[in-house]
Amino acid sequence: MSLLVDTMAASLDPAYAEAAKRRDAAPAAPAASRRPWAVVGVAAVAVGLVLAIGAVQTHDRAPDAARTRARLVDAVQARTHTTETLQQQLDRLRTQTSNDRARLLATSGAGAALDDEVNSLEAAAGTVPLHGDGLRVRLDDAPAADNSNPLGGTDPRAGTGDAVSRVLDRDLQQVVNALWAAGARGIAINGERLTAQTAIRSAGSAILVAYRPLSPPYDITAVGDPVGLETRFGTSATADRFRAYHDLYGLRFTYVRVRGVTLPAASALSLRYAAPVSGSQP
């Protein structure tokens, strides 16, 4: 550790000692060494300047970074606010459009028939919320066996569960198809409205509906004639199969009639074939 010892011992620049020795050896020098005060002054100014610049850099630039960050946060919030405003405007305009359409179409008999058709098509396409009675099917993974998951959690993404005791995307697809076949007018899974284009698929061990991950239990709500739905769904081959799954693997499967449920409108609906009519700005 001689390096550190040297650094500690010879902390004063040895040049000072040598210069002093030289001066002692030649006592005639003092007059000459008094001369360059200007040089020393400049050097001292430089020292002070460097210290001040360092301090300024530290104290001015740090708030600079903080300011930049604050500005970015503000920008993000402003954009989010704009998006929300635009979304509200869009909702308002959609409502207005459908009101206008209903009013215009109601002026003629053929128009009224067309309006009814549009309304029923919208309900079927899932572009508007659907309210009514129906059936709720609940599917859930089998309870974890005592030794299968030491943490006892039901994290859908953990992937540690036994594959046969878990609800898969196929199961949800079969139940949904059985409900459509039983006469459902609209279906939502955990609040995600299904349309003709909604995909039910799995990514890893999570189930995505309309590209949003869901976690169990899965509530499949179908709006339709409750009694008819229950009868036809309860006697379907799918329901039979899930009862068997329940007996064999412990998969939880229940269904119950519900009254007065509202299915939300489907999210992110895009028009594929419709285009604005050219040359007819309102």
Binding site: W37, V40, G41, V42, A43, A44, V45, A46, V47, G48, L49, V50, L51, A52, I53, A55, V56
Partner: peptide
């Protein structure tokens, strides 16, 4: 003395 003065000047200019 001059050194201290010059140092103060340097700091002042920097600030």
């Amino acid at each position: 003395m001059i050194i201290l003065l010059a140092l103060a000047v340097g700091i002042g200019v920097g600030l």
